[in-house]
């Protein structure tokens, strides 16, 4: 735990995307902020049981899981549909030459 080195606001693009999705969904009224904090806090507590979280990748991993959980509970995004889309993205990445933009088939 040190305050010495300056760090980027978001260490990875997906950290930033997950953060922005949450802020945007809240701004659109999809869920209340206390409900988000409660959901996120619960996931952090569950993940923290296994080992101490360092506040980096593991923090945003918990964030993504909390976002999936709150979206499922609020009927915004169903787990099955998400699993299908994730598989489609994997297929798209594997079928795209390295460095080229990746697009989902049919979009």
């Amino acid at each position: 735990m040190s305050a010495a080195a300056p760090e980027p606001v978001f260490a990875a693009p997906w950290h930033a995307q997950a953060f922005a999705l949450t802020v945007h969904l809240h701004a659109r009224g999809a869920f209340s902020w206390p409900d988000w904090a409660k959901t996120f806090g619960a996931v952090l507590a569950e993940h923290g049981l296994r080992r101490d979280l360092d506040g980096g990748d593991d923090y945003f991993l918990a964030w993504v899981e909390a976002l999936e959980r709150i979206c499922a509970r609020c009927d915004l995004a169903e787990a099955a549909a998400l699993a299908e889309l994730k598989a489609a993205w994997i297929e798209a990445y594997l079928a795209t030459p390295h460095g080229a933009p990746v697009h989902l088939r049919g979009t």
Binding site: P13, W14, F60, V64, E68, L94
Partner: peptide, 18 residues
């Protein structure tokens, strides 16, 4: 090795669906 990390794919799936 061409794939983004798992949570990045899950965020992409969420963004696509929403």
């Amino acid at each position: 090795s061409l794939l983004p990390p798992d949570p990045a794919l899950r965020v992409k799936a969420l963004e696509t669906l929403l």
